[in-house]
Design a protein around this nucleic acid. Structure first.
Lengths: 213, 213
DNA sequence: TTGTAAATTGGACCTTAGTCCAATATCTTC
DNA sequence: GAAGATATTGGACTAAGGTCCAATTTACAA
């Protein structure tokens, strides 16, 4: 199944020609007449395969810019390529600030659109991969008990078991047990791996309490 | 010393009013009539303090867009705020793709420019900090001997000393010595720290050779 | 040729980490 | 009230990492 390009444009003729062009280039397409219509399509917003969105800036109801912002806010991975007939500079700047791949005023060369779509799909693939990786790590973290999680955050600071034990006011033995479980649950073969897992999801490591806490 | 805002615009009256506005807002300013003039100012391109650039897009000689690209290519940290009297959408899109903070068509509200400059300076500060940190790590890496560097890359994979020793066809004892030196030279208090240092500068860790290699 | 940096190894020893056993105390929940 | 999860600890080992000592070999530069 080729990657999907969603199209949202209120002009039927534009939708038609975009679909023709993109399908001819080997993409799967799905077109909508408005942002509302697109938002009504639930599965469209959680594509398993990399996908992207070719979006008209100016539409009745929810604007393209607005739709882009909504999607970004909900963490949906759908890089956007804007097209527009009557755009202006502030609009294009806002779109780019919000992470748009490109912003093409009509008329544009087919080549330009295709290049932008390719780039958008590449980015979608990368983001999906990264997101999936993080989700998997979070899944593992969620299997940790509160205490294990606490020990986890201490371990990745590089502190010795005995130091962590003193910090948590338990014996070193206890830390060893928790630590072993953390390694197992996080599927980390080594401390180096564990540290990298923590870095990937941006876990704030504990800070050594001074003196008697 | 307040942060510096460099101004490059071929129109003397624009330079003058920009300088007035920015100085009144508490910034140090330094204005140039052309990209060439700015490039001739060596110290301007390696500011110790965070600085940014307010840049006219369209100028005789090297254009603003072009200047931005040149600076980026040489790794100079100078976030750009574009201003323009006769810009178009493709121009603004290109500028944003190249990392511009904002792109303001004239006439713009003073508030807009100031907000963009603030943001540019914030970004400059962050980039300078990150760059400095990386530079310091690289400095340490460069004090490693070739063999130490090699061991370094193996250590951060999480492999045991004996495994690394087998990989490099030396005794475990040798690895221990190199490893200790690596920790010392890299100023890492623990393996966790060492891994994080490596991650920060994106060091590719070694890959275990299969079988007899 | 001599000095220096780099790479290698050994011995002796101590400190840490990890593992397999088992046991106890709480607390929540069905 | 009993089952199950969580947190804690102990004993007894094994193995892995780190340290302080010293020594040899090689290669390159002064």
């Amino acid at each position: 199944m080729p990657p999907t390009v969603f199209i949202v444009d209120d002009d039927p003729s534009v939708r038609k020609s975009l679909e023709r062009l993109l399908r001819a280039s080997g993409f799967t397409t799905q077109a909508f007449a408005s942002a509302e219509d697109f938002l009504a399509c639930r599965p469209c917003q959680n594509p398993k395969e990399p996908a992207c969105l070719v979006l008209d800036v100016r539409m009745p109801g929810i604007s393209g810019i607005n739709l882009q912002q909504k999607l970004a806010k909900t963490g949906i991975i759908l890089p956007v390529v804007f097209i527009t007939g009557h755009g202006d500079i502030p609009m294009s700047v806002q779109a780019m600030k919000d992470g748009a791949i490109d912003f093409l005023p009509k008329p544009f060369a087919e080549k330009e659109l295709l290049a932008a779509v390719e780039q958008a799909l590449t980015k979608a693939a990368r983001l999906q991969e990264e997101t999936a990786e993080k989700a998997e790590i979070h899944r593992r973290v969620n299997t940790l008990t509160p205490r294990e999680y606490e020990v986890f955050r201490w371990v990745i600071t590089g502190m010795l078991n005995k130091e962590i034990a003193a910090e948590l006011r338990v014996t070193e033995k206890t830390i060893k047990v928790h630590r072993a479980r953390v390694m197992q649950k996080m599927a980390a073969a080594s401390l180096a791996d564990l540290v990298r897992l923590a870095e990937k999801i941006g876990i704030a490591s504990e800070k050594r309490s001074s003196s008697g806490n």
